[in-house]
């Protein structure tokens, strides 16, 4: 990679696995769980967070020397809120049914802990380009978990992916359903998301024992 030095590339790579915002840093879980019953919503949410975090990190990084530290939380909140309003209005204009599905969770990107966490931990102390990379990296790490959870929940819960039937038609009993396969309605209900994330954590920490926590 000529474009990125090794140090910069790590900013993108680390959050994807060993420093994942959701499974390791425990940030941004609120919105990650509620909207993952469907793959499409997960992807849109991941893109929205990528936009907000990428741009927000750059803005905060650009202003880092002029923000008085006492009021920095409020300044950060205002920056995020402005970006989220943009996302919300775009969704309402171009994808209204989807913005209904995501309902208040678009607004809750404001209080997504990943965003405030990255502002505080990275953008306030680093230059524009690195902050941008950090934002993209962390939102990719966030998005990957969302897409994995959304994939399994939609596939096992409704037998579809992006709304297209994968296993055949459950009502007319075609495809897999002809052999007695049933959709697992359990995957649709909200608590299933927690259990899927729990299993992802389990798999990840089995592969990399260094991440195991104390009880």
């Amino acid at each position: 990679m000529a474009l990125l030095s090794k140090k910069d590339a790590n900013l993108i790579k680390d959050p994807l696995a060993d420093n994942n915002p959701i499974t390791i840093q425990v940030l941004g879980i609120c919105s990650a769980l509620a909207i993952t019953a469907e793959l499409k919503a997960s992807v849109v949410m991941a893109i929205a967070v990528m936009f907000v975090l990428g741009v927000g990190n750059v803005v905060i990084s650009a202003m880092r020397n002029i923000i008085p530290s006492k009021i920095r939380i409020i300044v950060q909140l205002i920056v995020v809120a402005t970006l989220v309003i943009v996302v919300d209005q775009v969704l309402k204009a171009f994808a209204y049914p989807l913005s209904k599905t995501l309902s208040v969770f678009v607004g809750l990107i404001i209080t997504n802990c990943i965003i405030m966490g990255r502002f505080e931990a990275f953008a306030l102390g680093n230059g524009l380009w690195r902050s941008f990379l950090d934002g993209i990296g962390n939102s990719l790490g966030y998005g990957i978990i969302l897409v994995i959870v959304g994939f399994f929940r939609e596939l096992l819960g409704s037998g579809t992916l992006f709304g297209y039937p994968v296993f055949g038609d459950p009502i007319e009993k075609t495809g897999l359903y002809a052999f007695g396969y049933e959709n697992n309605g359990f995957m649709i209900i909200p608590p299933a998301a927690l259990i899927v994330v729990g299993i992802i954590i389990w798999v990840q920490r089995t592969r990399n024992p260094a991440l195991v926590e104390e009880n």
């Binding site: 954590i201 024992p209 926590e213």
Partner: peptide, 8 residues
Amino acid sequence: PAPLRGLG
């Protein structure tokens, strides 16, 4: 189980 401890 060790990998599940804490967060999992």
